[in-house]
Design a protein around this nucleic acid. Sequence first.
DNA 1: CGGCAATTTTACAGTCACTGCAAGATCATC
DNA 2: GATGATCTTGCAGTGACTGTAAAATTGCCG
Lengths: 200, 200
Amino acid sequence: MSEAMEEEPARTEGLRERKRRATRLRIAEEGLRLFVENGYDATTLEAVAVASRISARTLFHYFKTKDEILQFWKGPGFLEALGPTLLAESADQPPLDAVLSCFLKLISRYETEKSVIVDRILNSTEALRTRKQAIYVTMEQTVFAALCELWPRPERRASLRIVAMMAIGALRLAMEAQRQASGTRSLADYLRDNFALLGR
Amino acid sequence: MSEAMEEEPARTEGLRERKRRATRLRIAEEGLRLFVENGYDATTLEAVAVASRISARTLFHYFKTKDEILQFWKGPGFLEALGPTLLAESADQPPLDAVLSCFLKLISRYETEKSVIVDRILNSTEALRTRKQAIYVTMEQTVFAALCELWPRPERRASLRIVAMMAIGALRLAMEAQRQASGTRSLADYLRDNFALLGR
DNA sequence: CGGCAATTTTACAGTCACTGCAAGATCATC
DNA sequence: GATGATCTTGCAGTGACTGTAAAATTGCCG
């Protein structure tokens, strides 16, 4: 059938792309499973590769570093949606209120079972805890950039930078508090409390 | 073997301790020098060991990790003095004012030439930038602990936790701003600005 | 001074994350 | 079904870091 019509360009990007995505998912799943079973440090990438039925060398074509396997699960839940969601907020409210509103819309994805599991691993090792801080920095920059778009007046920039810092800090402390209380109150409650305390 | 020349008969702290301290200092100095000359990543610990005239294995008895060599320079300037200095503040002022006052007393040590050099290295590599964030977390905990001693009423704890977060955040942003402006204003000015913005 | 125990230094071997390279396997397309 | 692009893999190597056990050094006592 030599129909010269290219109605589906996804067909050309088909099998290869799909296979690649499947392999990446398999690595992430097997990796997470082994991390949970044996611990993060005790799990070698060799073992993850074997469980994923690929060579060790190939694994590095899918994940550049070991902790990227964990970021596969952590990433899409929050970071990517942060900028767009915040930009959709109204500029008629105080910036802090906008960020709080945005956070409240997003944190539901963060309370899935898998997120809790990943979070436990993320807190099990110094190297990963440190890595987590880096993510907060990225989120802070994302929030700041979005705030600058919503309130473009340049004389507010310094103030917005502080707002971004306080907002992410409040989020971090809320998650920290909830972890320690282990589930007696919802993350949203802690968030609202912390944001209320920001302005004193 | 040469004669035993004991000009200073140290009682409990003998030759051993002094030699150990000298070796540690030598490693830190040679390490910093090589980091500046060739870059942090490009400098192997093997090279640092050779420059320090010790074996590679011995180096690990003095510094457990590569970045600990940098922390040798960073550490004593700020982190260790933070708790005691903050505890010396008066509890008659708002907590944020106390932290600001404490910071202003301490940051002078942070503007030495060596600190600037170390800071440049600390910002030259992703791994070290991440490491730096971990130090901020430690400082935040230190500030929080001191604040809890100054204002022990338990119902204020949540609020003090936020204060510690905001204070360290303001410090971090001040240093960030000064780095980017490369010295046109003093760190103290940025700090005062940021603390003024915290209360809005 | 000599001898002995405690400590320090070192060599050696090994683990693990990660990289570069080049050959083989697989896939898309004409 | 040949061809070029992409994917997979083995192999060798680097560099941070660890365990071990043998030397060298140091503290101390008689």
